[in-house]
Design a protein around this nucleic acid. Structure first.
Length: 202
DNA sequence: AAGTTACC
DNA sequence: GCGC
């Protein structure tokens, strides 16, 4: 009866975005990726992650041999593109917050890509919720606890689903175990996109 | 380890 | 196939 998915502050809004809204977001994200190319960052141990990522907003999340952090520039040196207005509007409508997110992290999962269980803890203030949008292929999302270990629970996220992690769920471990490559027709070449919106600075 | 692999 |  202590299921992680029941953690206060964890919300899954199934099917929040219709197919037109999804297609519009994909178009916006293509513009971002054209200005700030997707990369597979390496971890502190030099291993590239299977996910490709880029960011929009004042700050982008990066990883390299120095660790994880937010930076105002893409590794290639350009500033991150602004967060597309439709994405900001989604943040506002779902969270109801006046404060805008600083970072829109865009993760692309190709065939076989995964994301290990982790906490979002590189931000300066954990009181703000994290909002996550799934686009394209279905992904098996796993939710753990605020401490490592313990029970976990999984849910298949589909294109158009929106997840909010706030309150007790804000620092809970979470990850993506696998995607069903080719399960959606939203992206012509397959794969899953996840958008993560975060307030980074206190 | 925001990692990978192995094993049930 | 999936949880760990």
């Amino acid at each position: 009866m202590n299921s992680p998915l029941k953690i206060r502050g964890f919300e899954v809004h199934k099917g929040l975005l219709d197919s037109q809204a999804q297609a519009e977001l994909v178009s916006d994200l293509r513009d971002v990726a054209r200005a700030a190319p997707m990369r597979s960052p390496v971890t502190r141990w030099g291993k590239p992650m299977s996910v490709k990522m880029t960011s929009a907003g004042r700050l982008g999340w990066i990883s390299d041999r120095r660790g994880y952090r937010y930076e105002p520039r893409h590794p290639d040196g350009m500033e991150w593109p602004p967060i597309p207005s439709r994405i900001l509007a989604l943040w506002t409508s779902v969270t109801g917050l006046e404060r805008a997110p600083d970072c829109c992290l865009i993760n692309y999962y190709g065939e076989g890509a995964r994301m290990g269980l982790h906490q979002d803890n590189d931000e300066g203030d954990f009181d703000w919720p994290v909002l996550s949008v799934s686009l394209g292929d279905e992904g098996l999302f796993r939710m753990g606890n605020v401490e490592r270990g313990g029970s976990t629970e999984s849910v298949w996220l589909q294109s158009g689903d929106v997840v909010v992690m706030g309150g007790a769920a804000r620092l809970a471990y979470h990850g993506v175990d696998k995607i069903r490559f080719g399960s959606s027709r939203l992206l012509p070449d397959g794969g899953r996109i996840n958008i993560t919106l975060r307030v980074v600075e206190a």
